[in-house]
Deep mutational scan, measured.
Amino acid sequence: RKESAFKSMLKQAAPPIELDAVWEDIRERFVKEPAFEDITLESERKRIFKDFMHVLEHEC
């Protein structure tokens, strides 16, 4: 699924995404990734990013 691929892309980011990361600041790192391009709505990208950050916070 496209959403899973997007989350995997975020999870495998190098360097890892920090807990205090803001979408607008890290977005540039992913613009050339196929998983990024597959999610065409920016609002959807932000939503998935927020979900990812929520999970990340609870893993720590």
Results as ranks from 00 to 15, higher is better:
52 F>L: 07
36 F>W: 05
35 A>P: 07
55 V>T: 15
18 E>Y: 08
23 W>Q: 01
50 K>T: 14
7 K>R: 07
32 K>T: 13
15 P>Y: 02
32 K>C: 14
47 R>M: 10
53 M>H: 04
45 R>V: 00
10 L>V: 02
21 A>S: 08
60 C>L: 09
44 E>Y: 04
29 R>I: 04
24 E>W: 03
17 I>R: 02
57 E>I: 07
27 R>T: 02
27 R>M: 07
29 R>N: 06
18 E>M: 15
7 K>L: 10
15 P>H: 09
59 E>W: 05
45 R>I: 00
34 P>L: 07
57 E>L: 07
14 A>M: 07
6 F>S: 02
4 S>T: 15
19 L>S: 13
10 L>W: 00
51 D>W: 03
23 W>V: 02
4 S>R: 14
16 P>T: 08
32 K>S: 11
32 K>M: 10
1 R>S: 15
31 V>H: 07
46 K>H: 07
54 H>V: 14
15 P>I: 05
51 D>S: 09
30 F>Q: 01
12 Q>F: 07
49 F>N: 06
28 E>H: 14
50 K>A: 10
37 E>A: 11
5 A>F: 12
37 E>I: 15
46 K>C: 08
18 E>A: 14
46 K>W: 04
28 E>D: 09
45 R>S: 00
47 R>H: 06
48 I>P: 00
25 D>G: 08
48 I>K: 02
31 V>T: 09
35 A>T: 05
3 E>H: 02
53 M>Q: 13
51 D>Y: 05
40 T>M: 11
59 E>C: 11
6 F>I: 00
33 E>Q: 06
12 Q>H: 10
3 E>V: 11
38 D>H: 10
40 T>S: 13
14 A>I: 08
8 S>Y: 08
37 E>V: 13
5 A>V: 12
13 A>R: 02
51 D>R: 06
56 L>V: 11
7 K>P: 01
34 P>Q: 12
58 H>R: 12
41 L>S: 13
18 E>L: 12
44 E>I: 03
18 E>R: 13
33 E>S: 12
3 E>G: 03
50 K>W: 11
24 E>D: 11
60 C>W: 15
4 S>P: 05
54 H>C: 10
56 L>Q: 09
59 E>Y: 05
25 D>S: 08
53 M>Y: 03
6 F>R: 00
32 K>P: 05
27 R>F: 05
12 Q>G: 07
5 A>L: 15
34 P>D: 08
13 A>Y: 03
55 V>L: 14
22 V>E: 09
23 W>R: 01
17 I>K: 00
15 P>D: 05
49 F>H: 03
28 E>Y: 11
53 M>S: 04
10 L>C: 02
55 V>W: 11
55 V>K: 15
4 S>M: 15
8 S>M: 14
59 E>V: 06
36 F>R: 01
46 K>T: 06
18 E>D: 13
11 K>N: 09
10 L>A: 00
38 D>M: 13
16 P>A: 11
18 E>T: 15
8 S>E: 13
29 R>M: 08
54 H>P: 06
41 L>G: 13
48 I>H: 08
53 M>A: 06
49 F>E: 00
4 S>H: 08
4 S>K: 15
8 S>K: 13
8 S>L: 15
54 H>R: 14
54 H>A: 13
10 L>Q: 01
24 E>F: 03
18 E>S: 14
56 L>H: 15
36 F>M: 06
14 A>L: 11
43 S>N: 14
59 E>P: 10
21 A>Y: 03
3 E>D: 04
37 E>W: 08
19 L>V: 14
35 A>E: 12
6 F>Q: 01
45 R>Q: 03
18 E>N: 10
53 M>T: 09
20 D>Q: 06
10 L>K: 00
4 S>W: 15
10 L>F: 03
9 M>Y: 01
48 I>W: 07
43 S>V: 08
57 E>M: 09
47 R>K: 08
30 F>M: 03
17 I>T: 02
43 S>Y: 03
3 E>S: 03
16 P>C: 07
41 L>N: 13
37 E>Y: 11
45 R>T: 02
53 M>C: 10
